[in-house]
Design a protein around this nucleic acid. Sequence first.
DNA 1: GCCACGGCGGCAACGGGTTGCCATGTATTG
DNA 2: CAATACATGGCAACCCGTTGCCGCCGTGGC
Lengths: 360, 360
Amino acid sequence: MPDHIRPPGQRVTIYDVALEADVSPSTVSRAFSRPSRVNSETAERIRQVAERLGYRTNPLARALTTSRTQMIALVIADITNPVYAEIVRGAQEVAADGEYTTVLIDAQESDRLERAAVERTMSTVDGIVLASSRMSDSAIRMVAKQRPVVVLNRALADVPCVVTDDPRGVRRAAEHLGELGHDHITYVAGPQASWPNGVRWRSLLEAGMELEIKVRQIGPFSPTLAGGERAAQELCARPATAVLAFNDQMAIGIIRGLSRMGVNVPGDVSVVGFDNILAADIVTPGLTTVAAPLYAEGSAATRHLLTMIEGAPGHTGRPMVLPVRLVVRDSTAVRNPSPGRARPAWVRQRPVPGPAAHLP
Amino acid sequence: MPDHIRPPGQRVTIYDVALEADVSPSTVSRAFSRPSRVNSETAERIRQVAERLGYRTNPLARALTTSRTQMIALVIADITNPVYAEIVRGAQEVAADGEYTTVLIDAQESDRLERAAVERTMSTVDGIVLASSRMSDSAIRMVAKQRPVVVLNRALADVPCVVTDDPRGVRRAAEHLGELGHDHITYVAGPQASWPNGVRWRSLLEAGMELEIKVRQIGPFSPTLAGGERAAQELCARPATAVLAFNDQMAIGIIRGLSRMGVNVPGDVSVVGFDNILAADIVTPGLTTVAAPLYAEGSAATRHLLTMIEGAPGHTGRPMVLPVRLVVRDSTAVRNPSPGRARPAWVRQRPVPGPAAHLP
DNA sequence: GCCACGGCGGCAACGGGTTGCCATGTATTG
DNA sequence: CAATACATGGCAACCCGTTGCCGCCGTGGC
């Protein structure tokens, strides 16, 4: 039991420990930060005294001289979007392994808020992962000049990047729709500030050329359920038999919107989403979507960041590309020969989808 | 334009500014931290020099003497659970208003991880909001002894708490089911470490007494989709006509599980969830659920925390109780007179639910 | 004309570790 | 046995602001 009671409200410092263990404060410091630099018996004794006194090294004081806080910032575009949950998990796992604490920042889809938050946090962290940043390229570079930065879901010269193979994902989706007889795909665009949005549209254009499928774009819409529902209305004005949405939330919104107007998915229109969020598996019909390795994105980006913090140069050449895969569920089907004539949505073969594949 | 170029990698300090503005470092310090304490013209000059040199006050150094970091920690049980997104938003809003940065920590439903993270972060933040903490009461009190703490979704003597009026929510759900003719409600329990889990069950017991509805409990199950599906199996072994689930994810899992086994919701079984997550509105059938004012929870807890940090005593009497409301959708219906006989799930009146009410 | 007082700025001591350098004492080497 | 190397621990400067206290100066009151 601790026989030396500390005056309350007083933190225990290395000086207290030093006094008690009869060594100098520097030795106490070294016992914790450079154990090899001090005799193992002495170190052990110090550690015991420290334990008894309840000493905890003060990370702020340490950071003052080492300029290392053992914290990294993870900036995500929108905490409301379930996509980021897995990314966060991946990042946290790696960070925790490396003895780093993750500071999570939600940018709320706002360029301004994101910059302000980064600005405020920058000096307190050892590095930053920007996941789907909404900031301008120049703003990102400015940040990267002051701290190690890894950018996720965006490619940017001179800054290390991790992206997913969206072109391949779009291509697979287009092939899938093509095989089902669709010769025309409408892309429902998300936020213009989103880098993947551009990539996905351009990839679809390209895939359309090669596969001889006509493509067009509508939008942009907000990358949310509501945005998808608005898109559904526009979709009715200019009918389509196959739709590729910027993300799953929009895709689900589209399905809802269409259904409400009596259009059947997948009977009349096939819909493909992007991200494979959990909800994609529980909606009716189950959503066919392009799945990204979210957890791996978070962990890869963070792993890279940590090596940069440890002094590695930060590989700024080609971005690191992670594979994607197409998860086929029930929102896509063979093209309806008479698109105008809607069958009731509830006359479906499988009332409730079985457990479809879903990313770990 | 900055004519005095700083040597790269060198942070600008108050000493640099002092030299340039021809005042002492303490004056520079005061010009920023206590402007009233220095002549306004001098302050202005200092500010301009600082601007020109690109001076930014180092929050760590400041914290070392003031022991104020302007950061608060928000610990959530599981970032995967969409419930916390709105709570985070509410907390962040209030924190940002008060010039505080929010450090978000995901405990991954683990007592151990939560303690470790709190331990690590504690000394770096001015206060902590524990949202649905999985730690023991004593562990929480230990933390509260060292830093201002507000606990969310849990009541605990001697520590300020913010909770929702779950008893009333359960009561409303029970009344609703009673009105539909159900005379028996099965509670599907969530994690035992979850405080609201106990409250909800006890409230149901009580409501059952008053309303003359029989109640029973099964579980505990994991508070996830998968947990709900497992619960559905057990539910089949011991049939029920009305189910109250610990949360929406479980409720959705239960519906899925039951449907797969040919049991129709709400035809054969009515299911009520808790939380009103977004998915509750997009699944088929739409989920009847008890909605909590998530955003308000986050903001109220944080507001309280900030006043404590500013020196207020921290009102530890009765917990602050926030109102809830029952959102009725399509997963509850009049009790089926012949429960054993399942109708096919897909023979439903409304194939896709219209836009049901859903928390802002 | 003298004193009191308020405004303003500087000095120096912190806060809590970290680290370069030096002084021991002991082990190793020739 | 002398010379050198190494292991270990202490000293003191440093990181970058903050703040108690003191001194200077100008102003106003009596």
